[in-house]
Write a protein that binds this DNA or RNA. Structure first.
Lengths: 147, 147
DNA sequence: ATTATTACTTTTGTTTCGCAAGCAAAAATA
DNA sequence: TATTTTTGCTTGCGAAACAAAAGTAATAAT
C-alpha cells in the first residue's frame, strides 16, 4: 500500500498511477462496455492475460478506483465496480476518445468509429455526466456484498 | 514506422500510443514547463534516464507528436517542439491535473498544488486554448531548421 | 455424481525500463 | 590555437513489467 512517485508534480503523480498499458483500458471496459466480472474482462477484444488482469484488479482495488463485491446468491462470480474515484476518470477517457478519433486513425487503419463521438464533442460536460449517471443507475444500487 | 494495436477500439489504440510511463510526462514538460532541449529534459525533477529519453523522443517524432529542429546559429543543441497533434493532447493533461488534484494527494503527501488549478476548473476550454496559444506564440515562429 | 465454469496462481520466457559509464561533435574558454 | 566543457547521445548489464500457457480449487450447473 506504499506507492512510489517520481516527484512532486501532480500530473506526473497521476501518471505514476495511471501510466501503464492496462489501467485505463480496464476503466474503459467497465465504463463504456459494461464489463464487470473477471470473465468479462478476459473475453474482451484486448485479450488481457489472466495473470496481468488479476494483478491490475488487485492494484486498482487497493487504490480505491474499483471495489470487489459479490452477489448474495452467487459465491463464485465477483463483481468489479467503479468507485467515485474511478468514475472521476471519465473525462480522461472522453479526451482520449476525441484525440484518438482525430489523430490515431492514420496509424490504425482498422480502428472503429466511436458511435458517440459527435455527441461527445458537441457537449463534453453533458456527455460525461450522462455516462457517470448511467453507470451509477445500473450498478450503484445493486444488492451486493463487499468482500 | 509500423505500430502494434491491441484491437479496433479507439480508446485502447490511443493508449497503445500514449500508455507508458513517459510520453505524457514529456508532453507536460514541454507544454507546462517550457522544456525543449535534450538537456532540459534530463534536468527535470522526473530524472529521466538518457537512453529512455532518446528512444521516446525518436518515437514521438516518428509519430508526428513533436518535431526535432535546430537553431541556425547552433549545430549542437536540438529543439524538440510540439506539433499540432502534440498540442491536441492539452485537454488530456488538464484532465489529469484535475483528477490528480482531487484523488492523488492522499497517496503522494509531498505533491505540490497546481497554481492554476482553480482557473483550469472554472473554464477548462478557455484554459486549454490559452495554453496552446501561448505555446505557439513562444515557439511557433522561431527561426529554425528542420533536420 | 459428473461436468463445466469462474477466478484465479504458477511457471517460464520476453520485452521494456533504468542506472552507470562512455563517447564524439560542437562550443566555449584560455 | 589548444584545451576544457557542454550537449546529445549510445552501450552494456541488471531489474522490473508484461505475456503465453498450463494448472488448480471452489462453486455451479447438469
Amino acid at each position: 500500500m506504499e506507492y512510489k512517485f517520481r516527484c512532486e508534480c501532480p500530473i506526473t503523480s497521476a501518471l505514476d498511477i495511471l501510466g501503464d498499458k492496462w489501467i485505463l483500458v480496464i476503466i474503459k471496459l467497465m465504463l463504456i462496455q459494461d464489463k464487470k466480472t473477471f470473465k468479462d474482462f478476459t473475453e474482451s477484444d484486448e485479450a488481457i492475460a489472466t495473470n496481468i488482469l488479476a494483478s491490475k484488479l488487485k492494484y486498482m482495488e487497493e487504490l480505491g478506483i474499483i471495489t470487489k463485491t459479490q452477489l448474495p446468491d452467487n459465491k463464485k462470480t465477483n463483481l468489479y465496480l467503479l468507485t467515485e474515484k474511478g468514475l472521476a476518470l471519465t473525462p480522461i477517457i472522453v479526451e482520449l476518445s476525441i484525440w484518438s478519433d482525430e489523430n490515431v486513425r492514420v496509424h490504425n487503419k482498422i480502428m472503429k468509429d466511436s458511435p458517440e463521438i459527435e455527441i461527445m464533442k458537441s457537449d463534453k460536460a453533458a456527455f460525461i455526466k450522462l455516462k457517470q449517471e448511467n453507470y451509477k443507475a445500473k450498478n450503484g444500487f445493486d444488492i451486493r456484498i463487499k468482500r
